Computed example of a mutant assay.
Amino acid sequence: MTNPVSLYIRDLEKQQMKRRLIKQGVDTLTVTLPKSWITANNLRSGDEVDIAEQDNTLQIACEKRLLEKRKTIDISGLSNPIVWRKFIGAYRTGYDEIKIIFESQNKEYDIVYSSIAHMERRLKMKTMDMLQDMVYRFVGMEITDQQQNFCIVKDLGGVSKDQFDDALRRIFLLLMSMVGDLQQAMQENNPEMLTGMAGTDTNIDRFTDYCLRCLNRKGYHRFSKTPTIYSYILTLELVGDELKKMAAHLSSQPLSNRRFKHILIERNKLIRSLYELHYAYKVPVIIAIFDKNAALTLETDGEFKKASNGDLEAAHHIKKVSALITQLLQLQIELES
């Protein structure tokens, strides 16, 4: 498993160390690399590094064999939702091995499953059943050892650039699937078509967590843009959450305002436009999406004032999706800058 480790040499940045250029031969200048960086990455004479130029910045990157990262989580006394959040944090951070300590295998946890149709299933699970159910949700992770008061969870899948790219594309495709289901359900007045959207959103969460894990382990291929793409992916996840909430509402309370239906359908089209923009950046497309989103926002605000009580919640989610689209546009511009 490898990780890009980058050294930035920038002019006039006080926090960066200085190096003198050394003339070698007729037209060649060399610069020494920090000993601490060489040691940390186990580099030797003759090893290859990747060099990328960008304006007055030179990025030197190498691939090093990562030491296996281990984390211990003690879930004693914690509820199921808190256990999940602690595990998500460790998974996203990029730990290869997570040791989970628990009080007893016989402890029962309260589990709540909910669906788009607002039907909740409540059940109790013993410790290992709960942990098995949780670990299954995370790409590449498996329980490899189980003892009386702990278990070991390991990453058996690894991370790579290709897997990251595939997971990100799947997030987009799943969002467009949700959009398509919403649109078809409204056009056919068939709320039953919305019942599968909770599962689709769960898959978006799975691939989101995996993408964030990849970024924390390896960084983005344009290393300086890692925080930007991290925020971009989190925002895509929020779009999925809003679409799921909208589906939950519409499954029991169909829209009565025809203009809201039109606004929702048109705004959903912008999700596909964002997908196409991400893989084929064009300034005219940015402008078109921004203008269309702004116009739909004004129309939503106008309809919001005269909406029935039943339509208000849907309008609220429509407005939140609009704000998230604006955030995605801004982040996309930053990715291309």
Rank of each mutant, 00 (worst) to 15 (best):
L270S: 00
T28K: 05
S104H: 03
L212A: 05
Q146H: 10
F304V: 06
G25W: 15
N257V: 05
D27F: 10
R10H: 12
V285Y: 07
T195V: 14
P81N: 04
A280P: 02
D155M: 05
V135P: 05
Q16V: 13
E68M: 09
R169A: 08
Y8G: 04
V83F: 00
Q148W: 04
S308W: 01
S251D: 10
D311G: 03
V83T: 04
I38M: 01
V179G: 11
R259F: 12
P191S: 03
L243F: 13
Y220Q: 03
M176H: 07
K154C: 10
Q330N: 11
A323F: 15
L58E: 05
G25C: 06
S6L: 01
T228E: 09
Q148H: 10
L7D: 04
K71A: 09
I333R: 04
F102L: 02
H278M: 03
A248E: 11
M130P: 02
G25P: 08
V135N: 10
N203S: 05
E313A: 09
D201Q: 07
L7G: 12
E63R: 12
K14P: 06
T93R: 13
L250P: 03
L7R: 02
V285T: 10
Q15I: 11
V49H: 06
T32P: 05
G219S: 07
D181T: 11
D155T: 04
L67K: 11
A185K: 06
E336N: 10
P34R: 02
K69D: 08
K18S: 14
I265Y: 05
V239T: 00
A288F: 09
V239C: 09
R272W: 01
V283Y: 03
D27Y: 11
M1I: 00
D110G: 08
R258M: 15
F172P: 02
S6N: 11
K292Y: 03
L234G: 14
T144E: 09
K71L: 07
